[in-house]
Design a protein around this nucleic acid. Structure first.
Length: 265
DNA sequence: CTAGATGTTAAGGT
DNA sequence: CACCTTAACATCTA
């Protein structure tokens, strides 16, 4: 479930559970999630230090230590963070476990090991190297409008392009488009100011609401598309039938009656 | 058994 | 060059 709202929830969780404690041990249980570091290098660079603060850009979470390098976390399709008791651990999907001097430990879980754990000397530089665009939850209308206007293709893939806009993935792009009443395949060029404004407003509202509801899809308002995101489910606005399409290499869902903006398919 | 699943990236085609 | 689609990664579930 890790898109921007999930990662923001993880960030807050880490902030409230794992800061300012001395790291006593770093246990790598799967090297597949390591990016550019060996398990030894990771441990050697973190043991004895403390996590002091966090920074999120899109779906990336950076955990700054009291002295570089800092920790980089990406959750892929199935990651999460969980504070566990050092003595009583058995998480089947715990891939890296950071133990603290107070007996607690932070587990980086990842069922399908598509996430990444690594070290970066400089957070800004790491963001630049990855060419991450501005954070979707933090972007002004003007900047957002500039990005959309300069997009040459379909709106849904653009919303999910992390180099243009960081944080929105397949699930939330569907919700944003639904609330803005924009067809997923609408060409960016044909969107008028009103639609772009609506997309920006929807994006802020959707991401904010999702974070408030703890990024738990089951707790989203019933008026949202996500609880009805599936073939042949009924649209919460018009009761029409929700349809499945493919765009940007992923499958998306939308309401053909409520989301009309395209000129053609 | 097969297809598909919240992400990213490389490859090939238009 | 900019975009599109597909495949791959690893693992589990419908």
């Amino acid at each position: 479930m890790p898109e921007l709202p999930d990662v923001e929830v993880f960030r807050r969780y880490l902030e409230s559970t794992s800061l300012h404690r001395r790291i006593t041990r770093v246990e790598v249980r799967s090297t597949k999630v390591l990016e550019g570091v060996s398990n030894k290098t990771l441990a050697r660079n973190l043991v004895g230090k403390r996590f002091e603060r966090t920074y999120r850009r899109g779906k990336y979470l950076f955990v700054e230590t009291d002295h570089p390098p800092h920790l980089l976390l990406h959750f892929g399709m199935s990651g999460a963070l969980s504070l566990v008791d050092t003595g009583h651990r058995d998480g089947k999907y715990d891939r890296v476990v950071f133990s603290f001097d107070d007996g607690a430990a932070l587990a980086y879980e990842n069922r399908r090991q598509l996430g990444r754990v690594g070290l970066v000397d400089d957070v800004d530089k790491a963001i630049e190297e990855r060419q991450l665009g501005p954070d979707a939850w933090d972007i002004s209308y003007e900047e957002f409008a500039r990005i959309i206007s300069s997009g040459a293709g379909m709106i849904k893939p653009l919303l999910m392009d992390q180099t243009k806009l960081a944080g929105v993935g397949n699930i939330y792009s569907d919700e944003i488009l639904f609330q803005a009443k924009v067809h997923p395949k609408a060409q960016c060029k044909q969107l008028d100011r009103k639609s772009i404004k609506s997309l920006h407003r929807s994006m802020q509202r959707v991401l904010g609401t999702a974070i408030k509801r703890h990024a738990d899809p089951g707790k989203l308002p019933r008026s949202y598309l996500l609880p009805h995101r599936g073939p042949d489910e009924s649209c919460p606005r018009c009761s029409g039938s929700v349809k499945k399409i493919s765009a940007g290499g992923r499958s998306g869902y939308y309401c053909p009656h409520c989301q009309k903006t395209p000129g053609k398919t």
